[in-house]
Amino acid sequence: MNPPRSNAICIYCGSSPGLLPEYAEAAVHVGRTLARRGITLVYGGAHVGLMGMMADAALEAGGRVIGVMPHLLIGKEVVHPGLTELHAVESMHQRKTLMADLSDGFIALPGGVGTLEEIFEVYTWTQIGFHTKPCAFLNVADFYSPLFRFLEHAVAQRFVREEHHRMLVMEESIEDILDRFANEEPVIADKWMDIKSEER
Protein backbone atom coordinates (compact mmCIF):
# COMPACT_ATOMS: atom_id res chain seq x y z
CA MET A 1 0.00 0.00 0.00
CA ASN A 2 1.32 3.43 -0.92
CA PRO A 3 0.13 6.14 1.53
CA PRO A 4 -0.77 9.60 0.28
CA ARG A 5 2.30 11.71 -0.36
CA SER A 6 2.74 15.15 -1.84
CA ASN A 7 6.16 15.29 -3.49
CA ALA A 8 4.56 15.70 -6.91
CA ILE A 9 0.95 16.54 -7.70
CA CYS A 10 -0.72 16.12 -11.08
CA ILE A 11 -3.13 18.91 -11.97
CA TYR A 12 -5.80 18.56 -14.64
CA CYS A 13 -7.39 21.80 -15.84
CA GLY A 14 -8.73 23.67 -18.84
CA SER A 15 -6.75 24.62 -21.92
CA SER A 16 -9.08 27.63 -22.02
CA PRO A 17 -9.33 30.36 -19.36
CA GLY A 18 -13.07 29.86 -18.85
CA LEU A 19 -15.69 32.52 -18.25
CA LEU A 20 -15.09 33.68 -14.69
CA PRO A 21 -11.94 35.50 -13.50
CA GLU A 22 -11.96 33.26 -10.42
CA TYR A 23 -10.79 30.34 -12.56
CA ALA A 24 -7.60 32.11 -13.66
CA GLU A 25 -7.00 33.42 -10.14
CA ALA A 26 -7.26 29.89 -8.77
CA ALA A 27 -4.87 28.47 -11.38
CA VAL A 28 -2.25 31.10 -10.54
CA HIS A 29 -2.69 30.51 -6.82
CA VAL A 30 -2.34 26.75 -7.25
CA GLY A 31 0.90 27.16 -9.18
CA ARG A 32 2.37 29.50 -6.58
CA THR A 33 1.23 27.35 -3.67
CA LEU A 34 2.77 24.17 -5.03
CA ALA A 35 6.06 25.99 -5.65
CA ARG A 36 6.13 27.51 -2.18
CA ARG A 37 5.49 24.12 -0.58
CA GLY A 38 8.24 22.48 -2.61
CA ILE A 39 5.78 20.28 -4.51
CA THR A 40 6.51 19.45 -8.14
CA LEU A 41 3.70 20.30 -10.56
CA VAL A 42 2.93 17.62 -13.14
CA TYR A 43 0.54 18.64 -15.90
CA GLY A 44 -0.18 18.36 -19.62
CA GLY A 45 2.59 20.72 -20.73
CA ALA A 46 0.61 23.43 -22.54
CA HIS A 47 1.14 27.19 -22.41
CA VAL A 48 -2.53 28.01 -23.08
CA GLY A 49 -5.55 28.57 -20.83
CA LEU A 50 -5.54 27.68 -17.15
CA MET A 51 -2.76 25.19 -17.84
CA GLY A 52 -0.36 27.88 -18.98
CA MET A 53 -1.30 30.33 -16.23
CA MET A 54 -0.70 27.72 -13.57
CA ALA A 55 2.65 26.64 -15.00
CA ASP A 56 3.81 30.25 -15.37
CA ALA A 57 2.93 30.99 -11.75
CA ALA A 58 4.75 27.91 -10.46
CA LEU A 59 7.88 28.66 -12.48
CA GLU A 60 7.89 32.33 -11.49
CA ALA A 61 7.72 31.25 -7.83
CA GLY A 62 10.75 29.00 -8.28
CA GLY A 63 8.85 25.74 -8.56
CA ARG A 64 9.58 22.60 -10.53
CA VAL A 65 7.16 21.93 -13.38
CA ILE A 66 7.00 18.75 -15.45
CA GLY A 67 4.96 18.65 -18.65
CA VAL A 68 3.86 15.56 -20.58
CA MET A 69 2.62 16.02 -24.14
CA PRO A 70 2.12 13.89 -27.27
CA HIS A 71 4.30 14.73 -30.27
CA LEU A 72 1.19 15.71 -32.22
CA LEU A 73 0.37 18.56 -29.83
CA ILE A 74 3.99 19.65 -29.63
CA GLY A 75 3.84 20.03 -33.40
CA LYS A 76 0.86 22.34 -33.02
CA GLU A 77 3.03 24.65 -30.89
CA VAL A 78 0.89 24.57 -27.76
CA VAL A 79 3.77 23.31 -25.60
CA HIS A 80 5.09 25.54 -22.82
CA PRO A 81 8.65 26.65 -23.72
CA GLY A 82 10.03 27.08 -20.20
CA LEU A 83 9.29 23.87 -18.32
CA THR A 84 11.72 22.22 -15.93
CA GLU A 85 11.15 18.95 -17.79
CA LEU A 86 9.15 18.04 -20.88
CA HIS A 87 8.34 14.44 -21.69
CA ALA A 88 7.28 13.84 -25.28
CA VAL A 89 5.15 10.73 -25.81
CA GLU A 90 3.43 9.05 -28.73
CA SER A 91 -0.19 8.96 -27.59
CA MET A 92 -2.72 10.33 -25.16
CA HIS A 93 -2.76 6.96 -23.39
CA GLN A 94 0.98 7.17 -22.80
CA ARG A 95 0.60 10.77 -21.65
CA LYS A 96 -1.96 9.91 -18.98
CA THR A 97 -0.03 6.86 -17.79
CA LEU A 98 3.23 8.77 -17.42
CA MET A 99 1.54 11.69 -15.65
CA ALA A 100 0.05 9.22 -13.18
CA ASP A 101 3.36 7.43 -12.66
CA LEU A 102 5.16 10.73 -11.96
CA SER A 103 2.58 11.90 -9.42
CA ASP A 104 1.61 11.20 -5.82
CA GLY A 105 -1.89 12.68 -6.06
CA PHE A 106 -4.32 14.22 -8.53
CA ILE A 107 -6.36 17.43 -8.53
CA ALA A 108 -8.91 18.70 -11.03
CA LEU A 109 -9.33 22.45 -11.46
CA PRO A 110 -12.13 23.77 -13.65
CA GLY A 111 -11.96 22.35 -17.15
CA GLY A 112 -13.87 20.57 -19.86
CA VAL A 113 -14.34 17.02 -21.10
CA GLY A 114 -10.62 16.23 -21.13
CA THR A 115 -10.20 17.35 -17.53
CA LEU A 116 -13.12 15.20 -16.40
CA GLU A 117 -11.92 12.20 -18.38
CA GLU A 118 -8.45 12.42 -16.85
CA ILE A 119 -9.48 12.80 -13.21
CA PHE A 120 -12.13 10.09 -13.46
CA GLU A 121 -9.68 7.66 -15.00
CA VAL A 122 -7.26 7.90 -12.07
CA TYR A 123 -10.22 7.87 -9.66
CA THR A 124 -11.41 4.64 -11.27
CA TRP A 125 -7.93 3.19 -10.77
CA THR A 126 -8.32 3.76 -7.02
CA GLN A 127 -11.64 1.90 -7.05
CA ILE A 128 -10.17 -1.21 -8.62
CA GLY A 129 -6.96 -1.11 -6.60
CA PHE A 130 -4.40 -0.06 -9.21
CA HIS A 131 -3.14 2.60 -6.77
CA THR A 132 -4.13 4.38 -3.55
CA LYS A 133 -3.12 7.89 -4.57
CA PRO A 134 -5.64 10.57 -3.54
CA CYS A 135 -7.90 12.39 -6.00
CA ALA A 136 -9.50 15.80 -5.50
CA PHE A 137 -11.58 18.52 -7.09
CA LEU A 138 -10.83 22.19 -6.43
CA ASN A 139 -14.33 23.61 -6.38
CA VAL A 140 -13.69 27.12 -7.67
CA ALA A 141 -16.85 29.27 -7.67
CA ASP A 142 -19.00 26.11 -7.21
CA PHE A 143 -17.84 24.79 -10.58
CA TYR A 144 -17.96 21.16 -9.46
CA SER A 145 -20.98 21.32 -7.13
CA PRO A 146 -23.39 19.95 -9.81
CA LEU A 147 -21.01 17.08 -10.49
CA PHE A 148 -20.91 16.10 -6.83
CA ARG A 149 -24.69 16.19 -6.68
CA PHE A 150 -24.69 13.72 -9.55
CA LEU A 151 -22.20 11.48 -7.73
CA GLU A 152 -24.45 11.54 -4.66
CA HIS A 153 -27.27 10.41 -6.96
CA ALA A 154 -25.06 7.62 -8.31
CA VAL A 155 -24.39 6.49 -4.73
CA ALA A 156 -28.10 6.51 -3.95
CA GLN A 157 -28.76 4.39 -7.05
CA ARG A 158 -26.04 1.92 -6.01
CA PHE A 159 -23.66 2.50 -8.91
CA VAL A 160 -20.97 4.05 -6.69
CA ARG A 161 -19.98 2.76 -3.27
CA GLU A 162 -20.27 5.25 -0.43
CA GLU A 163 -16.68 4.45 0.54
CA HIS A 164 -15.48 5.38 -2.95
CA HIS A 165 -17.51 8.57 -2.92
CA ARG A 166 -15.93 9.57 0.39
CA MET A 167 -12.43 9.03 -0.95
CA LEU A 168 -12.93 11.86 -3.45
CA VAL A 169 -11.78 15.13 -1.90
CA MET A 170 -13.64 18.34 -2.75
CA GLU A 171 -12.46 21.60 -1.23
CA GLU A 172 -12.56 25.28 -2.08
CA SER A 173 -8.87 25.91 -1.38
CA ILE A 174 -5.71 24.23 -2.58
CA GLU A 175 -4.28 24.47 0.93
CA ASP A 176 -7.11 22.34 2.35
CA ILE A 177 -6.64 19.75 -0.39
CA LEU A 178 -2.91 19.45 0.18
CA ASP A 179 -3.41 19.18 3.93
CA ARG A 180 -5.92 16.38 3.45
CA PHE A 181 -3.60 14.61 1.02
CA ALA A 182 -0.85 14.72 3.64
CA ASN A 183 -2.96 13.52 6.57
CA GLU A 184 -5.66 11.15 5.34
CA GLU A 185 -5.19 7.42 4.93
CA PRO A 186 -6.32 5.81 1.68
CA VAL A 187 -9.71 4.09 1.55
CA ILE A 188 -9.65 0.48 0.39
CA ALA A 189 -12.94 -1.14 -0.63
CA ASP A 190 -13.96 -3.58 -3.33
CA LYS A 191 -15.39 -2.00 -6.46
CA TRP A 192 -18.09 -4.64 -6.83
CA MET A 193 -20.61 -3.92 -4.08
CA ASP A 194 -23.04 -6.72 -4.96
CA ILE A 195 -20.69 -9.46 -6.08
CA LYS A 196 -21.42 -11.70 -3.08
CA SER A 197 -25.18 -11.63 -3.60
CA GLU A 198 -24.78 -12.19 -7.35
CA GLU A 199 -22.71 -15.31 -6.74
CA ARG A 200 -25.50 -16.94 -4.73
Rank of each mutant, 00 (worst) to 15 (best):
K133I: 08
A108S: 09
V79G: 13
G52I: 13
P3F: 08
G82A: 00
E198T: 14
E25N: 03
A156K: 11
D190S: 07
L168C: 14
M92P: 08
D179F: 09
T33K: 05
E172L: 11
M69P: 09
L83R: 02
E171I: 09
E25H: 08
Q127M: 14
G82N: 05
E163F: 08
E77I: 04
Y23A: 10
M193R: 15
I9T: 01
F120Y: 10
L50A: 01
D176I: 04
T84M: 07
L83M: 11
A141K: 02
A26S: 04
F106E: 07
E171P: 08
E22Q: 05
S15Q: 06
E152C: 10
G18D: 09
V78G: 07
E184L: 12
N139D: 11
A100W: 02
V122D: 03
R180A: 10
Y12S: 04
P21T: 05
S197H: 15
A182M: 08
H93F: 15
L34Q: 01
Y123P: 08
Y123D: 06
I74P: 11
S15R: 13
S103H: 06
E121K: 04
K133A: 09
D194Y: 13
G82D: 06
L20E: 12
V78P: 03
V65Y: 03
G111E: 12
R161V: 11
C135P: 03
T84E: 02
E162C: 14
I177G: 00
P81W: 06
F159D: 15
P4L: 07
V140N: 04
I177W: 01
I9E: 00
A88E: 00
R37H: 05
I66A: 07
E118C: 04
V79K: 14
T33V: 12
V65N: 02
I119K: 01
D179Q: 09
H93I: 15
R95I: 08
I39K: 10
A108H: 10
L151F: 15
L59N: 03
F159S: 15
E25C: 09
P81Q: 06
T126K: 00
Y43W: 02
R158K: 15
V28Q: 13
D104Q: 00
A26V: 09
T40R: 02
M51N: 02
L98Y: 02
S173F: 08
L34S: 04
D194C: 14
S15A: 09
I9W: 00
E198D: 14
I74C: 05
V42T: 06
F106D: 04
F150E: 13
M167F: 13
C13P: 06
K133H: 03
M1E: 03
A108W: 07
E163Y: 14
V160K: 10
M193P: 11
G62M: 12
N7Y: 08
P134M: 07
H29L: 12
I39E: 05
A136K: 03
H80F: 07
I107S: 06
M167G: 09
G38P: 05
A141N: 05
S6R: 07
S145E: 08
A58W: 01
V30L: 11
